[in-house]
Amino acid sequence: METFLQQLFNGLTLGAVYAVVALGYTMVYGIIQLINFAHGEVVMIGAMVAFTIITLLANSGLPPVAIVLIGTSCAIPVCMIVGYALERIAYRPLRNAPRLAPLITAIGMSIVLQHVAMMVWSRNNLAFPQIIKTETYDIAGASVTNIQIVIVILCLVLMGGLLWLVHRTRLGISMRATAQNPRVAGLMGVNINREIAITFAIGAALGAVAGVMVGSYYGIAHYQMGALLGLKAFCAAVLGGIGNVPGAMVGGLLLGVIEALGAGYIGDLTDLCAVPWLFAGLAARCAAGEHISLFGSNYQDVFAFLVLIAVLVLRPSGLLGERVGDRA
């Protein structure tokens, strides 16, 4: 039970971050049916920029919260510019090209961004200055840190804000209209290029915040950190139904929890002592109190992809997604 609760909290923290990153994938997909594989790198750049600013200010005597806020508010515009530039330079010229072309370009852009980041920030693990003192609370036997709590609350606020934007503002309504039928939205006076650029910028801004959160949570930043994180967030977006904003939120949280619970229990689930007859000597070692499992928690990353495969096989439109293609 303690493991369960503990992994649930860890999963929710991670899942909230996945959800915020997944929004960037799903919003872009919703409006131009492109999987922006470079989005993970935008998140990484957010973490890197925040790292630089926070390191610079670490000994400035400013209150720690203010330093993190300044770091984040620098990361956001940088990421928005990167997101906008990606759209403008790499994707817009290919808007009417066969779908494979922008997809390959997206992979190319992610490689380019990784290497630019490597040149700027080196290929080392960068230690995020731990300026905010970690405090741990005990909840029914599971421990939760103040950073986890802040991450979850912040993610929920961001998601709520985005839902409000998308459903309650004129910008949001026109973004959804553009996603559903760009030509007709154009006839209503919507400048589609502007709408698409704004979508990229909003996704990138969310990614920037996610990058800062991941950096502070794990305490490190690395030029390749965006690759796996991005891929998992993409899985989360597919799980929720790609193109669907609430879907990305549900998918992200769910994926985080599945992953954490999976990592928590994979040792027990693949406990070889449950089948002591499997090979010679096993029974004896188990009797001596040894724990022998086929897989350990380092297999955690597998779950995202198992989920992806399961979704693609069982419900390709995702949990909340509508079947694509029945609208002409």
Binding site: I173, R176, A177, Q180, A185, M188, G189, R327
Partner: peptide, 16 residues
Amino acid sequence: FPQLTVSENVAMGAYI
């Protein structure tokens, strides 16, 4: 716009 409400569709007409 199939996933917008009727009201939202009408509102889109007044976008400008």
